[in-house]
Design a binder for these strands. Sequence first.
DNA 1: CTTGACTCTCCACCTACTGGAGGTTGTATA
DNA 2: TATACAACCTCCAGTAGGTGGAGAGTCAAG
Lengths: 271, 271
Amino acid sequence: MIRIGLFSKLSQVPVKTLRYYDEIGLLEPAEIDSFTDYRYYSVTQLPRLNRILALKDLGLSLNQITLLLEDELPVEQLRGMLRLKQVEIQQRMGQEEEKLTRVAARLRQIEQENKMSNYDVVIKKVEPQRIASVRDVIPSYPEQGHLWQELETELVRNKIKSTGPCLTLYHSDEPKIDAEVCEPITEDVSLPKNTRVQTRELPAAEVAAVIHHGPFNTLSESYEAVLKWIEANGYQINGPGREIYLQPPAEGGSQTDPDTVTEVQFPVMKS
Amino acid sequence: MIRIGLFSKLSQVPVKTLRYYDEIGLLEPAEIDSFTDYRYYSVTQLPRLNRILALKDLGLSLNQITLLLEDELPVEQLRGMLRLKQVEIQQRMGQEEEKLTRVAARLRQIEQENKMSNYDVVIKKVEPQRIASVRDVIPSYPEQGHLWQELETELVRNKIKSTGPCLTLYHSDEPKIDAEVCEPITEDVSLPKNTRVQTRELPAAEVAAVIHHGPFNTLSESYEAVLKWIEANGYQINGPGREIYLQPPAEGGSQTDPDTVTEVQFPVMKS
DNA sequence: CTTGACTCTCCACCTACTGGAGGTTGTATA
DNA sequence: TATACAACCTCCAGTAGGTGGAGAGTCAAG
């Protein structure tokens, strides 16, 4: 019977940790003096402690280890756990690699411009959304006013309210700009078929997004930033870009109102 | 001004998290109603939130981000941080890779023997240790009794006490077994030079270790386990193996006492 | 006016420990 | 045998980045 300090020295596990393992019932001392509360261990407990360390090292939680050691090794289950761990570790390695790419991209960006970019691209998942929309080819980006009017008119006529910020999808820009202006609506509304306004489901997507705070006529900066980012981080565009009008410009100065807030999103996938 | 739920939906950050960010001063709402305590955000706060998410994604802690955003971007410092992060991520990837190797090795071992091994190998660092020792070539492993006697005699004569469990170093076993029996001692003792007993420093080392609980005549199982492990996990032996006699056998049944506890260590390095 | 969706604060919990305060116990030396 | 001093004890708090729930107040629609 040896005291906790020596047991700690032999096993190279801190005293505090041994006490903690006692507390959670993972490794209880062979004996506890009921007068002094001193913990007394036996060297024959070292194999168990080593097993604990080995399993911990494989990435198992102390809870899992406790169960494994209690239930007297159901080999099948252990095998399953390890397989899971394998997958988990591989995933984490993939994530670390992506993170490394992003850090490197950021560093390059800083080296080049010698300041932190004003645009921070984030990846997020957007949920599927029911929308009412009008789609048409337009001569230039700012000229979508009539599409918006067409959409609004139809919605007002059918007393439909929008359920969130409106947005535009750009299906292509070469040779002509193919735009679809959208207004999110609830699931259950339906529209007459005799207009160009249709309702459909905007699919869920993983998007690279950037927030543009400033007038529309500087939107290209945001586009540049997000497109650069997508390239630098090894993604590929996977659907029509979206512009979400979080804070539309005041009437009149639509191109230059500096208090406009717009989110630019591109659906992406890992390439 | 929008409420927290909508801000959460726009940013895809959970409400709870936004409240937490408020609490730690990372992102405070543009306004708080002093009667109802409702938080009101502005969409113009989305860029800041996106910056937070982007930096978090690079692996910075919320604390670091708070500082960065407060101190108005000292570019140099950010660059330094990112370089550090790069190194850190690379290290973590290395560790994950090793972990993967270990999990795979375990799995193979389980597949082969269809049970969990009785021997759990762990890597640990052992500290440097002052020892008194006698070294000689012996005909077989069990025949080290006379070396131990020689060592004990000298220690008793000089009234030196051992400061821990004794051990044997095996410098080679081919063609002959070259063994050094050792007794740990305090820093400051010295011995006369006219005997074969010498004192020296056992260097610190990273070792692969396994605990053998059972009679000496089954020690080979532990050796097999640790040597297999070293190979399977891509390590190389880097010094003489050590046997540490944590619980020496009772007098008499030295080869067969089942309550013997011995630690087998091999200094290793990554190959 | 009621219902139901939002929001608030406060508390506890998660992992695997670590650090410290304040109080015993064991051991070595004078 | 007295006294240091190391080793040990328990209990409490804190770490990072949140998540979950209780209980109470607020807002908008019908």
